[in-house]
Design a protein around this nucleic acid. Structure first.
Lengths: 159, 159
DNA sequence: CGCTAATTGTTTAAGTGTGCAACTATTGGA
DNA sequence: TCCAATAGTTGCACACTTAAACAATTAGCG
């Protein structure tokens, strides 16, 4: 999978009209461009998806969390967690342990292999983040994240 | 469809570890939050998707464009255009005319109803854009769009 | 205590979006 | 003329998202 599978935008030839003035459209393009790059990075170097790594990280930072709790945290339906945990478990990175206080739920933990893997990916992910956003200065990058956080959390219950 | 179908993020209870430091994750959240709102707006007021409106706008600004040209412009596979143009044609907003210079291709045009509809939606879309991003000051909003454009176009052929 | 309502993990199905390979009709170039 | 490329279309595979249903289990309340 090549990171530069960008199918020639050819901007400048086509008039996008009001789309150029809508923040949402630019946000979508920025996200698409970034996500494509990040997905290739995760896939090429670690054969994993950003979504799977997200679960790995959340479980790693919050050992014993139930599947439903993780689902809520990352904004998924709990039914989607089944396949996700299955995949991570099949790769020996995560573990389902029956909860001791509630026999309905599984408590999730990283295996020792999972912790090693997480550390490796996390280190490279941070480097790759700095590298990819090098089209911005450090100051701009910091500004950008600040604005993104406010947009991301606008209208949320914690606001 | 309610715009506030936000399934309780409950941030603060769960540690997201390094995800908090990755720009891509915040970009994804910001895009998700924004897109959900915009999709509801388009759906509630005009029974249309942002994607369909995008095609409508591009065709409106570039009459006679072929399906493949539109697909390239908006970053889609040309096979996906078939269903899109079908939908817009079925609603009487767009028209396929056989190209006079190339019998393989369809030239796309807005119908008069399509032009009226486009104008109505475009006006409200701009208002909604300003309204939704009111969590930022005008200056911040402008900054934000500038940064988004640079991130969106990074690595593209036109850069 | 006992009963009802709610929750957990899971499966299944439907809808959506994307990417890829094929097919036809047609065009363009050597 | 003949071969390669292109436009629109169709179909398929894959991933993601939602919703509904179900059994097992728990929690709340009289």
């Amino acid at each position: 999978m090549k990171a530069s599978d960008n199918q020639a935008l050819k901007l400048g030839e086509v008039d996008f009209g009001i789309l150029n003035e809508l923040t949402g459209y630019w946000l979508r393009w920025a996200q698409l461009n970034t996500y494509k790059n990040i997905r290739c990075f995760f896939f090429d170097e670690f054969d994993i998806t950003p979504g799977l790594f997200g679960v790995l990280e959340v479980v790693g930072c919050n050992p014993g969390l139930t599947q439903t709790a993780v689902a809520k945290a990352i904004g998924n339906d709990r039914s989607a967690m089944v396949a996700i945990v299955d995949k991570l478990e099949k790769r020996g990175l995560i573990e389902r342990k029956p909860s001791e206080t509630d026999r309905r739920s599984n408590a999730l933990f990283l295996t020792s292999a999972g912790r090693v893997f997480r550390d490796r990916v996390a280190g490279r992910a941070w480097d790759h983040n700095e590298e990819f956003f090098s089209m911005l200065t450090a100051e701009e990058h910091q500004q950008f994240v600040g604005l993104l956080k406010r947009v991301a959390l606008a209208g949320s219950p914690t606001e």
